[in-house]
Design a protein around this nucleic acid. Structure first.
Length: 435
RNA sequence: GUGGCUGUAGCUCAAUGGCGGAGCACCUCACUGUGGAUGAGGGGGUUGUGGGUUCGAGUCCCAUCAGCCACCCCA
């Protein structure tokens, strides 16, 4: 016998889990469709060279595999494969191109809460425009989606990579040390300002520069206030000023798109790890319980250029389905899914089995989800199974019903039972389901 | 990848180094044309796995696997 075990960090999704997971992804995809996104899906396996050199230090987390002499890897996210497929099909797609994709990605991390080696993401991107309207649109989508799922308290944190670069320059940090600075300030929420200052100094940043950086990342308040304060620190840096103007435009458009002010905030400490981001970056977090970010995204204007002579500006993000799901289970959110089968057709006796199966067939042809018994059994047992399997109605066709041309329809929600004419059964069942 | 904690029935958890249990869930019956309630009965475990110490190990030791937490980093 083989021990039935699954690989660490990877989990099976049983029907109970899949109902909620499907609800989550259906809800999110519905929002994306209303914004005009189209589905574009790529393979899980890529040539290793496609993924290498795009994601930064975490490249060591790539699951690598070899088939014959082919050097392959499982995708680490869906963004890099998107860049590849866009570069190869640019002429067919028509810019700007808005895509979404639902699927697994793989990272060889040690498993922890909210972190799995196989995890599902719903990725969405707008390819081919650098307008701040596009950045604003994806942020609006994110806010709307979280609302729809019921995460009223979630907040979207927004920052800009070029503002961080400007901060590093203005503080006098060497270009090579900048990545380290981003990594440290990104931990502000977790370790606090004093620890950030300490770690900055430890990493070789001067006390003066560390103080400047800490002042900057402590900025908070309404976007206008924060932007003005940023401007006064970074005003002399040309690239940072451009980034501030860009971020201002994005924020203005987010408001125009109808997003409530309390659902997003500027967060000067937000850095995000993936090395391909070039502009605006954002993520969504929930204050309680702790779960890391529910989604993450930003603008990456140079990634497609790594696969093509011509680069294409792109902004995108990915929902973390595992985290959304785990949180919704923990917080008892989402529908209850008590009745997800329309009808269960009982089988009274061997003689009446054929007619019961015909009955089920008619209901299915009308588009209903129908279970049948797999043989005669005590009616009590059959009702019990019908209830357990989530049926709304149970149908009985017994000898008395057969001779009277009736079918008994029992509503398992209430226990009430009524007869219906055999030749009107589809309409009668549909009518019952409406109530 | 590094460090720490945990692992007993499907689930939640008991059991001083001395006979492995409870509640819930599941199955059968009371009930041969009616589920949820009630009652009676039943099935379930190599105590994650493999070694070791001991007269005796769920309990102590080592290894391993998995999960949780902290790093690292991230959805």
């Amino acid at each position: 016998m083989i021990t039935p075990r699954s690989y660490k960090g990877m989990r099976d999704h049983l029907p109970d889990a899949m109902r909620l997971r499907r609800y989550i992804t259906d809800t999110l995809i519905d929002v994306l469709r209303r914004y005009g996104f189209e589905e574009l899906s790529t393979p899980i396996v890529e040539y290793a060279e496609t993924l290498e050199g795009k994601i930064g230090e975490d490249e060591k987390l790539l699951f690598r595999l070899q088939f014959g002499s082919d050097q392959l890897a499982l995708r680490y996210d869906q963004t890099v494969p998107l860049a590849r497929v866009i570069a190869a099909n640019e002429g067919k797609l028509g810019m700007p191109f808005k895509r979404y994709a639902l699927g697994q990605s793989y990272r060889g991390e040690r498993q922890q809460r909210g972190r799995y080696r196989e995890f599902w993401q719903l990725d969405a991107d707008i390819v081919g425009v650098d307008s701040p309207v596009a950045d604003a649109e994806v942020i609006a989508i994110v806010c709307e989606s979280l609302q729809r799922l019921g995460f009223a308290g979630a907040r979207v944190l927004i920052n800009h990579r070029e503002i961080l670069s400007g901060l590093a320059r203005v503080a006098g940090v060497e270009a090579e040390a900048a990545a380290n600075v981003y990594r440290i300030i990104d931990k502000l929420d977790k370790i606090g300002l004093d620890q950030v200052r300490e770690q900055l100094v430890q990493s070789g940043v001067s006390a003066d520069a560390a103080a400047k950086i800490c002042d900057f990342i402590s900025l908070e308040g309404a976007p206008d206030t924060v932007l003005a304060a940023m401007q006064s620190t970074l005003g002399d840096d040309e690239a940072a000023s451009a980034a501030l103007a860009n971020l201002r435009a994005i924020i203005e458009n987010v408001a125009l798109l109808g997003v409530a002010p309390e659902s997003y905030t500027l967060s000067p400490a937000l850095a995000r790890g993936l090395s391909y981001y070039t502009g605006c970056v954002f993520e969504a977090v929930l204050a309680e319980p702790p779960m890391g970010s529910l989604l993450g995204g930003g603008r990456y204007d140079n990634l497609i250029g790594m696969f093509s002579k011509r680069s294409l500006p792109t902004v995108g993000f990915a929902f973390g389905i595992e985290r959304l799901y785990d949180l919704m289970v923990e917080l008892k959110m989402g529908p209850t899914f008590e009745r997800f089968i329309d009808a269960y057709v009982t089988i009274f006796s061997p003689e009446l089995e054929p007619e019961s199966l015909r009955l089920a067939s008619e209901l299915r042809a009308a588009g209903l989800s129908v279970l049948t018994a797999y043989g005669p059994a005590r009616l009590g047992t059959q009702f019990s199974e019908a209830d357990r399997k989530g049926a709304t109605l149970a149908l009985v066709y017994g000898p008395d019903d057969a001779s009277a041309n009736l079918v008994q329809i029992k509503d398992l929600r209430t226990g009430a039972q009524e007869p219906a004419a055999r030749d009107q059964i589809v309409a009668a069942v549909q009518q019952k389901l409406q109530t």
